[in-house]
Amino acid sequence: MIVLKDVSKAFGGVQANKKVSLSVEEGKITGLIGPNGSGKTTVFNSIVGYHPIDEGSIQFKGQEISQMPVQSIARLGLLRTFQQTRIYGKMNCVENMLISTDNRNASVWDMFGSRTSEIQDKAEHLLEFVGLYRKRSLKAGDLSFGQQKLLEFAMALMNDPDILLLDEPTAGINPTLINGLIDRLHRANTEFGITLFVIEHNMRVIMNMADQIYCLSNGQMLASGKPEDIQNDKRVIDAYLGGH
């Protein structure tokens, strides 16, 4: 669904990504791992258009997107969540959800669409799904970091994306809730049919969840394969233990 071919990106003298190639298959959960500073978030930012890439190509459903602006890429059905969560702090949770609906075919008059009970129900259903229903009339800015993370996830689901890029979904979440979150990510994948592409530090989580895993190290693709292959790959273990 997403195909990166030889994508390079440098910030000043720092080569954040060096000829990274990967592909995310439709309907699957794909993981992206790697030690700190290995260029994972740079890959995400390149895909969603936060910065231009130096060379290479990024395709989404066969369409070249490496030159498109952020909003247009989002309207193709490709969404991401942020490592430092971003929600609309002064609006309450339900409002955060209501404004996150799909914009793909929005006409000028849809700007003035009123709140139908249909989307209201959907918003509340999704808040229930991530476990924030009780908090729905609180200001999003007053939620805890973990709750904001869940809200951001729910907002992304509200948008009915084709693919969702999650940047460390379990970071900052109470460990007792992580199993629940894995379950929800699985359900988002199977029930809602959303392809997932996940950056994750927690090995247990990613090994449980992903169908395919890519491992980055120092901006380069180190290894890729099924979770069990990655788990036993000596290069990956070395990279994590600071072999370089």
């Binding site: 971003r86 929600i87 700007m111």
Partner: peptide, 29 residues
């Protein structure tokens, strides 16, 4: 107008315009 989607979009732009763009809202419109 503020009771419709329009009002929510304006508030979203106020709170975090970059996020609104990342969610695909046509902010300039």
């Amino acid at each position: 107008v503020t009771s419709t989607r329009f009002g929510l979009a304006l508030n979203a732009i106020r709170d975090d315009e970059a996020k609104a763009e990342a969610m695909g809202i046509r902010t300039l419109r």
